[in-house]
Design a protein around this nucleic acid. Structure first.
Lengths: 242, 242
DNA sequence: ACAAACAAACACGCAAGCCTGTTCTTACGG
DNA sequence: CCGTAAGAACAGGCTTGCGTGTTTGTTTGT
C-alpha cells in the first residue's frame, strides 16, 4: 500500500515473483512454526500477498508444501555444487565438507525435514511426490563425497558408507538437539567424527583451517530457531492431568 | 455388551486399568497415525472406552500425550535394565547391545519420537514436561553402556562418545528410512558400525551369536508400520499446483 | 477486449473442550 | 447382612474455534 509503486512488470515476472515469495515464506513458516501451526493465511501474510493469490498459484496447501520443499532442496543442491567448484579437485579437506554439511543441515534443512517427515510417513501420495525430489538432492551429495574420496583413492563403496554414516549421524544429532540443547556436546562429537573420517579416508591429520564459504541458505542463518511463542496456545486448566 | 461381566473391580483397579488402556492406545495411535491424525475419539475407540472416560482421566489431549510418552519410555527403560540383568557383567557383546538398541528404536520408539519432536520444538511447556522423562531414559541407556565399557577398561568419557554416536546414528538411520526404505542398506551400515565399535572398545572380533531377548515392546513388533490408509485424505483437484 | 493475477468474503468439516446424565464402588447405619 | 447415600468412574451429546477449499469480485497486463 502506497509503496514505490512497482513499474509494469511483465505477467511472467509477476507470477514468478509471487510464487517465489510464497515458496520462501512457506519454508520460513515451516521452520519457525512447524507443519501443524503453519497456516495458509500466515504464509500469505509472510509473503506479503493475499490468501487469494496463494490459492490462485497453489491448488492446495500440500501442493505448496511439496513445491517449497523442492525449492529448498534445490537451494541446498546448488550450494553443494558451488562448494565443490570452489575447491580444486584434490584440495578439499574432509573437515570442510563435514562442516558444510553440518551447517547446512543444522542451519535449517533438517529442522524443516523433521517437520514433514512424519507427514510423509503417513501420507503416501505426499511421500511419493517427495521421493524424486530428495533423490536428486542425495545424488548431488553423493557426487561431492565420491569426488573427494576418489582423490584419496578410496573405493566408491567404502566411501559411500562413510558418507551415509556421516549424514545419519548429523540427522540424529539434530534430532537429539530438540530435547538436549548442548552445543559443546555436538561440537565435540563432530570433531571426534572428523578424526574417524580422517583415518578411514586416509587423509593426513593436517587439515586446512576450514575456509568455509558462508552457508548458502541465508534464510537459515540462525542456528537456534526464534522459538516464537505460540499463537494457538490456549488457556488450559491448570490441573496436571490426574 | 454381554461379555463376561467383570467382577467387582476395586476403584483403584478400574482407574488404573482404564488409564493403562488409554496410555497404550495413545502410543499405538501415535505410531500408526501420527500426532496430527491422532484424535481423542480414535484413542477412546482403540482403548475400548468412551471419550468421556478419556476426558475424565486426562484433562487435555496434551496431558494424555505426555503421560503416554512417559509410559512408553518407562517400558523401554525397564527393557534395558532387563537386558543388563540378563547378561553377567563381562559377557555382554557389544553387538547384542547395539542390536537391542536398534530393535528398540526402529521397532517403534523412535518413530513415535519423530512424531512428537516437532511439537516439542514449537511448544515450550510441552517440551519442559518432556525433559525429565527423556533424561531418565537416557540415564538408563548410559548405565548399560558404561557398564559394558567398564568391563572392557574403556574410560567413561570415551565410552560415552561412542554411545552417543551410536544413538545418533540409529536416529538418523530411522529418519532416513521414511524416504528410503531399504533394509539391506541399514543392515549393512549397522554391521559396519559394529565393527568400528569393536575396534574402539577393544573387544575381540569373535562376538557371540547374539541371543537377543525378544524386544520388550511387544506393541511394536512390526518393523514396517501398517501404513494404514488415510482417514482424512480428502478429494483434491488433480491439477498439479500451478 | 480479454485473460491472467490478485483480493476478500463465504461455507464446510472437524476436533478439542465442556457439560449433563448414568452406572459402579464404597462407606455407613440399621 | 442389607439398604442407602455419596462420590468416583464412565458415557454421550453439544458448542465453539479454526483452517482449508471455494466462490465471487476487482485490478493489472496484453
Amino acid at each position: 500500500m502506497m509503496t514505490v509503486m512497482p513499474r509494469r512488470r511483465t505477467q511472467e515476472e509477476r507470477r514468478e515473483e509471487t510464487r517465489a515469495r510464497l515458496l520462501r515464506a512457506t519454508v520460513e513458516a515451516l521452520r519457525d512454526q512447524g507443519l501443524t501451526r503453519m497456516t495458509t493465511p500466515d504464509i500469505a501474510r509472510r509473503a506479503g500477498v493475499s490468501r487469494g493469490a496463494l490459492t490462485y498459484h497453489f491448488a492446495s496447501r500440500e501442493d505448496l508444501l511439496v513445491d517449497s520443499i523442492a525449492w529448498l532442496l534445490d537451494q541446498a543442491t546448488a550450494g553443494l555444487r558451488k562448494l565443490c567448484d570452489a575447491y580444486p579437485a584434490p584440495t578439499m579437506p574432509i573437515e570442510a565438507l563435514v562442516d558444510y554439511l553440518w551447517d547446512m543441515m543444522a542451519g535449517g534443512l533438517f529442522q524443516v525435514t523433521m517437520e514433514f517427515l512424519p507427514e510423509a510417513r503417513h501420507n503416501a501420495p505426499f511421500r511419493e511426490r517427495l521421493l524424486p525430489v530428495v533423490r536428486e538432492f542425495h545424488a548431488a551429495l553423493d557426487a561431492s563425497w565420491t569426488r573427494l574420496s576418489a582423490v584419496a583413492g578410496i573405493p566408491r563403496e567404502e566411501a559411500q558408507v562413510s558418507l551415509n554414516a556421516t549424514m545419519c549421524l548429523i540427522r540424529g544429532m539434530i534430532a537429539q538437539n530438540v530435547l538436549r540443547n548442548d552445543p559443546a556436546y555436538y561440537a565435540a562429537m563432530l570433531d571426534w567424527w572428523k578424526r574417524q573420517l580422517r583415518g578411514w579416508l586416509g587423509q593426513d591429520a593436517g587439515g586446512a583451517a576450514r575456509p568455509l564459504p558462508a552457508p548458502i541458505l541465508a534464510a537459515f542463518a540462525v542456528a537456534e530457531p526464534p522459538r516464537q511463542r505460540l499463537v494457538r496456545e490456549r488457556a488450559r486448566r491448570q490441573a496436571g492431568g490426574g
